[in-house]
Amino acid sequence: MSNIEDIRKFYARLMAANAASSDPRLEAVFASVPREAFLGPGPWTVVAGNGKVTTPSTDPAHVYQNVLVALDADKGINNGEPFLHAMWIGKLAPKPGEAVTHIGAGTGYYTALLAGLVSPGGTVTAFELDDRLAHLARENLEAYGNVTVVHGDAVATSLPPSDIVYVNAGVVAPPADWLKALRPGGRMIFPWRPAERIPLAVMVTRTEKGFACDPFMRSWFIPCFGASLADLAAKIPTRKQATRSRSIWLTRDKQPDRTATAIFGDVWFSSKNLDAGPHARPRK
């Protein structure tokens, strides 16, 4: 039998290196949170390309790799790619005392990591729409006193004021209420899927001037119920337009102008940097 503590420590070191984070606590939480505790009993089903592979035993060493582990194969729900989540969490840079909202928490593994990073003093509100997964998340996170699991629809429910909103389901645009939930200096990462051919991860930061955004990598997540379909009046961006988006606006605050790269009802994307002067040209 393998030495699981050593394996977990090495896995954590790989996660921290991939995240390129200067926060040593990131490696520490990956080392301390047992991934297998959030996956159900093994053997586990690992997603490999378009196929699936079953681990040869219940040895948890098998899940301490950069692999997707199925949580509900029929629905296409998995535990997520550790390298990607390490990178995203490192980019968000959670701090002790901050309030996090996690949308699409699954069975709670990455919720637990976030809970560790905002301790002491911070809280995590974890939304999960799937009944079975929400039940498992509540059980898995019972020992984490700073986590509240909500079995509900994060699109139809007002989010609590948040320093971080961590979204693990694809949306055509973040609902206006998600943006408004961000406190000054707050950050959100969400999988942006304005069209089938355009899967992007976007970082949003609430500044004094508005919501700055940065589409920083390709990414694909399962669709977010209630926020994954555009209406007929939407302006769908091309891939080029999507990647040059630099700010997000609420139409109640500012109507779309010639810099608009995408328009979805009460939210629109612009190619203009928030720190650009009044006569600055939009990015091409």
Rank of each mutant, 00 (worst) to 15 (best):
V53P: 01
A227S: 08
A134D: 03
A195H: 15
L200A: 10
R239K: 05
G186D: 04
L39A: 06
W88M: 15
A181C: 09
G116S: 08
M203T: 13
A276I: 04
A112E: 10
V63A: 03
V100H: 02
A227F: 02
G51Y: 13
F264Q: 10
P282M: 07
F264L: 10
N146H: 05
G104S: 14
L229G: 05
I198M: 05
L129A: 05
S32P: 04
P194W: 05
D163N: 14
T58K: 13
A28G: 03
F216Y: 14
T243E: 13
V165K: 03
V267K: 02
A280D: 15
V171G: 01
G104T: 11
A28Y: 01
L68Y: 13
P160A: 12
S21V: 04
C213P: 00
G152A: 08
R218F: 14
A31C: 11
P82M: 09
D153S: 08
V69P: 02
T101D: 01
L159F: 02
M217D: 10
G121M: 07
S57E: 10
V118D: 04
P278N: 06
I263N: 02
A16Y: 00
P194N: 11
L26I: 14
L114Q: 11
L141W: 11
A230C: 08
G170L: 01
P191L: 07
I77S: 03
V155D: 01
K75G: 01
T207K: 03
L136F: 07
R258P: 00
S32D: 12
S228C: 08
R197E: 15
V69K: 09
